[in-house]
Nucleic acid binder design. Structure first.
Length: 362
DNA sequence: GAGTTTGAAACT
DNA sequence: CAGTTTCAAACTC
């Protein structure tokens, strides 16, 4: 029943668990994992206790505010909350921002100790607004997914929006407990999926929490959004790790940057990237690099391959998009595109001559 | 819809 | 940490 639980080891309070859901089984199983929970979460949580709660603290964060108030209001003893629960959240949230984070929280609540303890633990929990991401909670208590949900993530003064569509997964071998599974990677339970042997559901909460921990052990940032905060001049944000594409030119949905509709950046380790904005990014040092990559030396008869044609079209489209973005008039846009086409032709001709020289030398 | 390609994740 | 394998989505036919 309690969304706020104090976990004891022997007579000593061991951990404070804030949970949005009524999941006793999970609460019972979590203590074994809580020893390094703060480090695992990488969420500095300042805990000021009237009694020594002592141990690590799990703080619900990064959950749907629509869910939290209900559980908090229904589960907490109203008399022990120093401010009305409704105002507690309304001060920090717009109720119509699904998926937004709690952000800054200051509250005083009472947590009922187990029956073996006669006292209540009154604690003040203060979350620093800049450390709002609680991946473990997010993944342990996933929010319901919505079709084509637009998530608004607020971090400090920055606001990043990205499309988050809930697609049914088709996992067959991963039990949906590895990051291969999009549902799992998004911190969601599988629902209406076509997966087989799925463990990413409420019936396998323990296995799932183990898998979450394993992922976080491998990579503490495993469940952080891959599309990070926007940089100056980067309207939509950037990929936190960058992509490693080698064959797609970062112009297909294989590329995580392209799929997220963002430009590749210098963080990416991609080869032959075509997904960047020359005006705003340092991805490539010069336009020449781009053409050199896509118009390499080849046998004359095979220079104009399908790849070359696609690359040329890509160049022209990129120019068109840039012209449109910059708000140029049609005539100027046409000129830009034609100039780009000229550059492409120049490179093709150069490639023919280069490969011809090679052949002649042979 | 089956087969292939791709690149991230996982593993060694 | 680099190389390899596994995996599921994207893509092609």
């Amino acid at each position: 029943m309690a969304s706020l639980s104090v976990i004891y080891q022997g007579n000593q309070p061991h951990a404070l668990l804030l949970s949005p859901h009524d999941q006793h089984k999970m609460v019972e199983k979590i203590p074994a994992q809580t020893s390094n929970i703060c480090q695992m979460l990488q969420v500095p949580v300042q805990v000021v206790c009237d009694v020594n709660v002592g141990g690590p603290v799990m703080v619900l964060n990064h959950c749907s505010p629509d869910q939290i108030p209900h559980s908090m209001m229904s589960d907490l003893n109203a008399e022990s909350v120093s401010m009305p629960a409704q105002s507690f959240f309304s001060e920090h949230h717009s109720p119509h921002e699904p998926g937004s984070d709690i952000g800054h929280i200051e509250m005083i609540v009472s947590a009922e100790a187990p029956q073996t303890h006669s006292t209540s633990a009154e604690v003040t929990v203060s979350l620093s607004p800049e450390h709002y991401v609680s991946q473990f909670n997010q993944t342990l208590y996933p929010t319901q997914a919505f079709e084509h949900e637009e998530v608004v993530q607020t971090k400090g003064c920055e606001s990043v929006k990205w499309e988050k569509s809930k697609r049914p997964c088709n996992c067959t071998k991963s039990q949906c407990l590895k990051l291969y599974c999009e549902c799992f990677a998004n911190g969601e339970f599988c629902s209406s999926c076509k997966c087989t042997n799925c463990f990413n559901n409420t019936e396998h909460v323990f296995e799932r929490s183990q898998a979450v921990k394993a992922c976080l052990d491998r990579n503490p940032g495993a469940f952080r959004p891959k599309i990070g905060s926007r940089k100056q001049g980067n309207v939509k944000g950037c990929h936190t790790k960058g992509c490693n594409c080698k064959r797609s030119g970062c112009l297909k949905n294989y590329c995580e940057c392209y799929e997220a509709k963002i430009m590749c950046t210098s963080t990416c380790k991609c080869v032959g990237c075509r997904n960047y904005d020359e005006g705003c990014d340092m991805k490539k040092s010069s336009e020449q690099d781009r053409h050199d990559i896509y118009f390499p030396t080849r046998c004359p008869v095979s220079v104009i391959t399908r790849d070359v044609v696609e690359a040329t079209c890509g160049c022209l489209l990129a120019q068109a998009e840039e012209a449109q973005k910059d708000g140029h008039i049609a005539a100027h846009a046409e000129r830009m595109i034609l100039e780009e086409f000229g550059q492409c032709l120049t490179q093709i001709v150069r490639s023919i001559f280069k490969s011809s020289r090679v052949q002649f030398n042979l």
